[in-house]
């Protein structure tokens, strides 16, 4: 059985499980949960399933992986075998184990980074649009200044200054990405703050935090959710390129981005192993975007034509 066939079969299997899952949810749940399951497209069910599998793998990594993450357990570049199902890498660590641990590191960091970028960027953006005036000018021009510096060079600079721990990595990439989220959130909110219901809430005497949280945010959700899906993927790329430059996730920690780079030479020999971590990233990206598209449809009240 060729590699391509097994990938196709695997994807088909995932779709089948997703379909079953959705059918089960429709049968089991009642009320609004059932309505949600009823409207859910198959792609979204697939996305949720994939994300669920990734999350399970990331959490249960030590139990699932046959070998420890950092230990050299065999020769260099060993072929796929019973002992090492996906072979070994260039210094003899088990590929499968590293792939499993990679889920924990890469996905965890990417998710934490994107979430942080969104909380900071969205809150500041909505706040700037709501208050306007000097605050808006100050924040917006500051963000413009940050955005004027190329993102990669800026992160390199910051990482060189603050050192390369996982925490700084998260903070630095989040800071860079938050500027983009800020711009989007502010632009969306500017269209919302002029509505009468915001005026009504101000007349009621509501504070800024309530206005942002209950009046503006729910109406700005649709574009923000869509942006989240995109940003999440970009963060993968940023981490990978930083790892490539040696400032990202530091060896020997397993990370999908650097795993592609480390084992790239194998491609010359017709071996698909280096593509596996890349495939993991691609699959997650697609899954996240399936779910995001679905949420976007729900949030914006769009209906299938």
């Amino acid at each position: 059985m060729g590699f391509a066939t097994s990938v196709a079969l695997g994807l088909a299997g995932l779709f089948a499980i997703a379909w079953l899952m959705r059918a089960g949810a429709r049968a089991m749940f009642a009320g609004s949960a059932r309505a949600i399951a009823h409207d859910m497209p198959l792609t979204a069910a697939f996305g949720i399933l994939v994300i669920g599998v990734y999350a399970a793998v990331a959490i249960a990594a030590p139990a699932l992986a046959p070998f420890p993450e950092r230990e050299i357990v065999g020769g260099q570049f060993q072929a796929w075998s019973a002992a090492h199902p996906l072979g070994t890498d260039r210094i003899g660590r088990d590929m499968l184990s590293r792939l499993i641990y990679g889920a924990r590191n890469t996905v965890g960091i990417a998710f934490a980074t994107t979430a942080l970028a969104f909380v900071v960027g969205a809150v500041l953006g909505l706040w700037a649009a709501l208050v306007g005036g000097w605050l808006d000018q100050g924040l917006s021009r500051f963000v413009d200044a940050l955005m004027a510096i190329p993102a990669l060079i800026f992160s390199l600079l910051l990482l060189t200054i603050f050192g390369t721990s996982v925490i700084t990595l998260i903070l630095v990439i989040a800071a860079v990405d938050a500027t983009r989220v800020f711009r989007l959130a502010r632009a969306v909110a500017q269209g919302i703050v002029v509505m009468d219901y915001i005026e009504a809430a101000k007349l009621r005497g509501e504070g800024s935090w309530f206005l942002i949280r209950r009046e503006i945010l729910p109406n700005a959700m649709a574009p923000l959710v869509a942006e989240f899906g995109l940003r999440f993927c970009f963060v993968f790329l940023s981490i990978s390129s930083l790892s490539f430059l040696g400032l990202g996730i530091q060896p020997p920690t397993a990370d999908w981005g650097s795993m592609v780079k480390d084992n790239a030479t194998l491609i010359t020999f017709g071996d698909v192993t280096p593509l596996l971590p890349a495939g993991c990233i691609a699959l997650l990206t697609v899954a996240v975007n399936f779910v995001v598209d679905w949420q976007l449809h729900r949030a914006s009240g769009l209906k299938e034509q």
């Binding site: 509505m195 009468d196 219901y197 009504a200 809430a201 007349l203 209950r214 009046e215 729910p218 109406n219 959700m221």
Partner: peptide, 16 residues
Amino acid sequence: VQMIYQMADTALNPKL
């Protein structure tokens, strides 16, 4: 002093 607006569409938060 409370207010009722002309356009109920824009005066009620559509997400609440």
